[in-house]
Design a protein around this nucleic acid. Structure first.
Length: 265
DNA sequence: ATCTAGTCGTCAT
DNA sequence: CGACTAGAT
């Protein structure tokens, strides 16, 4: 679930853009997002195990959109699952099985439209599908990378080290990973929302020289994240208010009573 | 005003 | 994954 409500919180650090602004740049792409959207168009065939290239067509359409703006794409794929997220993965698998049963049932009853919705809910992006897209890219000389684990950190690495000027994703965690420029909600017209690291202080309501990225990251962690149970009643706004006044930027050594006292709970 | 937990949409005809 | 929202605090 990442950080709840991070993108709306960062409205002052965001602006609408068009891909044409990034002519000549290199973009690292979180392909999982495109794979998932593309799989929607051919969900039933994928679940039934029937051959389809619908998702490949969609990914390549997006790739062509970047190329048409003279942007060089580097497609980053997910590698191994993180052991820390195994529980989440198991729940998702369970959900898929449930929806698959329901889809087949609806199909028998002749409720085609409702069945399709269930099929779309239980699509799984397999490594075989990823490999098909990689082959399609290789045939067209498009760079692809398979990350050791989740693509997030690989995307951030490429951006921080200057290999990629921008990152294209739907995952707000990339902001915490330290990316300088991220495009969210990119549509098929090349419009999207750009979030810049250099503008993060605007959303925290502090002057640029008072902004500390570590504080920002710890503020997000305090508001609640995937990796550990979170404090009830503390969201981004309260976490932000706390970190503006505290001199200690370390979320782990700050005393709990201090936090609770500050937000008067 | 803020937080939580649940539901819905992503494609494309 | 996020967006949106009803409902609780």
């Amino acid at each position: 679930m990442g950080i709840q409500g991070l993108l709306p919180f960062l409205k002052k650090s965001s602006r609408n853009i068009q891909l044409s602004e990034f002519r000549g740049k290199v973009a690292a792409v979180d392909v999982y997002c495109w794979l998932h959207k593309g799989a929607f168009s051919c969900a039933e065939k994928l679940v039934k195990g029937e051959p389809t290239d619908g998702y490949i067509i969609y990914v390549m359409k997006q790739v062509n959109l970047l190329l048409s703006h003279n942007i060089k794409p580097i497609l980053v794929f997910d590698g191994c699952h993180l052991p820390a997220k195994e529980v989440t993965e198991l729940k998702r698998r369970e959900n898929r099985v449930k929806n698959r049963r329901k889809a087949k049932e609806l199909l028998r009853e002749g409720k085609i439209k409702e069945a399709r919705e269930c099929f779309q809910r239980c699509v799984d992006i397999t490594s075989t599908m990823a490999h098909e897209v990689i082959k399609a890219c290789r045939a067209r000389n498009i760079d692809t990378i398979v990350a050791p684990y989740e693509a997030d950190s690989q995307l951030a690495f490429l951006n921080i080290n200057g290999v990629a000027d921008i990152v294209i994703t739907e995952d707000s965690d990339l902001i915490l990973f330290g990316c300088s420029k991220i495009i969210f909600k990119m549509d098929s017209n090349g419009c999207g929302v750009l979030v810049e690291k250099e503008k993060l202080h605007l959303s925290m309501n502090v002057p640029r020289d008072k902004f500390d990225f570590t504080k920002f990251r710890n503020m997000c962690i305090l508001s609640g994240c995937d990796y550990l149970p979170s404090l009830h009643g503390i969201g981004l706004v309260k976490a932000c208010r706390f970190f503006i006044v505290t001199s200690n930027p370390d979320v782990y050594t700050v005393s709990l009573s201090k936090v609770l006292n500050f937000v008067n709970m």
